[in-house]
Design a protein around this nucleic acid. Sequence first.
DNA 1: TAGATTGTTAATCGATTAACAATC
DNA 2: TAGATTGTTAATCGATTAACAATC
Lengths: 224, 224
Amino acid sequence: MAGLVSIPKPTLERLPVYYRVLLQCRDAGMQYVSSGELGRKAGFDHAQVRKDLNHIWSGGRPGLGYEIEKLASCLADFLGLHNTTDAVLVGAGRLGTALAGYPGFASYGLNIVAVFDADPGRIGGTLNERPILSVTKLADLVERLGIRMGIIAIPAESAQTVAETMVAAGIQAIWNFAPAYLQVSDNVLVRNEDLAAGLATLSYYLKEQGLPSVDSGKLSDGQL
Amino acid sequence: MAGLVSIPKPTLERLPVYYRVLLQCRDAGMQYVSSGELGRKAGFDHAQVRKDLNHIWSGGRPGLGYEIEKLASCLADFLGLHNTTDAVLVGAGRLGTALAGYPGFASYGLNIVAVFDADPGRIGGTLNERPILSVTKLADLVERLGIRMGIIAIPAESAQTVAETMVAAGIQAIWNFAPAYLQVSDNVLVRNEDLAAGLATLSYYLKEQGLPSVDSGKLSDGQL
DNA sequence: TAGATTGTTAATCGATTAACAATC
DNA sequence: TAGATTGTTAATCGATTAACAATC
């Protein structure tokens, strides 16, 4: 049961984009920006921009636009960019390494506290200055530190097991990079970052482009 | 102008998930699967599953379900998993390394032909058996091989420039992992893989969870 | 046949786009 | 004041969910 002051998911996902553009504008010395310009730079419709922004702030000035400094700070507040969220990362492979080293996370309020792995060869080492611990220690650390977010960057086979460990230890939100559907109790939010989905979109488009413009009729629904 | 035999984007993004589940079912020795079971394992509604699948195949048998082998092969065909798509990857940093090494891509029909970077220290080396070339050679290679897909895994600052180079060389679809909005002519498809968007969703949920159940009234729209 | 499950139509829901009076 | 741009309501669009006759 989410709070009633709820924001549409698509809007929520656009907010970080607005925020980035605002920082750019500010760095370029601008003071105000209109929904039109913001939209052009972010890739969204101007009406959409106004609607989105109104969910979190109604301080735009007709004829002038939005005061960049104020709007940016408001967005930062809303997105929780000021107070950091602690998280644990499971998986010290290539993807885990990339995530642990991603400089953007710090500025987006995410703090990876520790990295876990099942491979004894990796345990004891460090990944970007974070200790690599045995996954058997996950529950204990999560409980002691009261960590609420977990990041899964391991092969699909072990993802469900790790997710269960996380949930049992009190994790409430899981960022899942494994190509697997995680079955968890429904008070836990899972966000799947599915590369195959992205790839499908692009491949389909390329396939369509390659076709000699199919603009009449549909495929008969016989065998395909 | 996309072809008329078009598939809703949300559906398109769910197809790879169905495919994965089907392979699992097949490996478990199953012959048929119903929309209900498929949905449970993929995380979608059973009606949704049927609707999605009917876009690409109407071979389900009432009372029985879908023949796994046939449906999987049909999906593989549709998603272009049989013939590979060649792509160039720009960025040999941590993220580029992770992408170049991601074993899933091969099975999803993506073939990264070469990796490009601007750092002279990296050029000449290899990344997962692919040569790392100077980004100045990008246009030439793309043109010669007729490559249509480009992957951007570099910091935001240089993303727009690289995108323009790609488009000028004939790239038609860009998979963008840089946190930047790319302005390209609209016959080129850009897919942004925006980690900040994912993070925003999760953080917002956690923030809400932490709140002492706000179930009456809204925030006054005074100062926030 | 009886039970299960499909393909598809209709109903619902939610998000985007358009429009415009209010206002800087 | 005139021009620009907001916040918000109404219209449109598209996707999800529900329902059910057809059929294995």
